[in-house]
């Protein structure tokens, strides 16, 4: 194939790649929407002084971080129906991603929470703020600033991890490229897939910088 032919072919497979991007982005966005708040809550629990809660959440984090995400996807989609919990493919993927990423986020937030000086809580307390007011107005903004670089890492990982949904039969970007590659016996689709991932990551890196800049107003 000459260059014009290559270009023509690329344009031909682009719609299927873009519909794969849709799945990738949809998993990505909804996982973040679910996993970040859940991660904050689990992180607060892990940083608390209530031992049973701390231990229970510790076990959760251990399981989530201690087994492959691929395995977790399989268990949620193929395993849970055995005990009567049936998810649609897409919901199974989201559920597995959210509980997996929430565990990583929780550990990041726990670290951030524990780096806040106890004196901050105490000064809030003598000013008669409630626990939740203290968390929302004083602690979380400071924690956010601390955890942003680590969160950014996980977020970029998530874009690529979303390709694991192929294992339960969902069609994402990487799978679209794979299908085209084996059908047409050319590596060009996978090259395009790589470029699209890089573009997505570039956008995310840009957003991350913007958010970090937003938090640079205090030290």
């Amino acid at each position: 194939m000459n260059l014009a032919g290559q270009w023509h072919y690329a344009m031909q497979i682009m719609p299927s790649l873009l519909s794969g991007v849709q799945m990738t982005l949809s998993i990505f966005i909804f996982t973040l929407i679910g996993a970040i708040p859940l991660g904050i809550i689990v992180g607060l629990g892990r940083a608390s002084h209530f031992k049973p809660l701390k231990d229970l959440l510790g076990i959760y984090v251990w399981i989530m971080r201690g087994t492959p995400l691929l395995l977790q996807l399989i268990v949620v989609f193929y395993g849970l129906p055995i005990i009567g919990i049936v998810f649609q493919r897409y919901n199974a993927a989201l559920f597995a991603f959210i509980i997996n990423y929430a565990a990583y986020f929780a550990e990041i937030f726990r670290g951030g929470l524990q780096s806040i000086d106890r004196g901050q809580y105490e000064s809030a307390r003598v000013l008669r703020l409630t626990y939740w007011q203290t968390i929302r107005k004083i602690v979380l903004p400071q924690v956010m600033k601390i955890v942003l670089p680590s969160i950014g890492n996980e977020v970029i990982n998530l874009v690529k991890d979303s390709s694991l949904v192929y294992v339960i039969g969902l069609g994402d970007l990487l799978r679209a490229g794979n299908v085209a590659t084996s059908r047409d016996v050319t590596l060009l689709p996978l090259l395009l897939v790589g470029i699209i991932y890089l573009l997505l990551t570039a956008v995310l890196t840009f957003i991350q910088q913007r958010v970090e800049n937003h938090y640079s107003y205090f030290k």
């Binding site: 901050q120 000064s123 400071q142 030290k219």
Partner: peptide
């Protein structure tokens, strides 16, 4: 150590 809130 004053414990002002650095984010405010």
């Amino acid at each position: 150590d004053f414990q002002l809130f650095p984010n405010l």
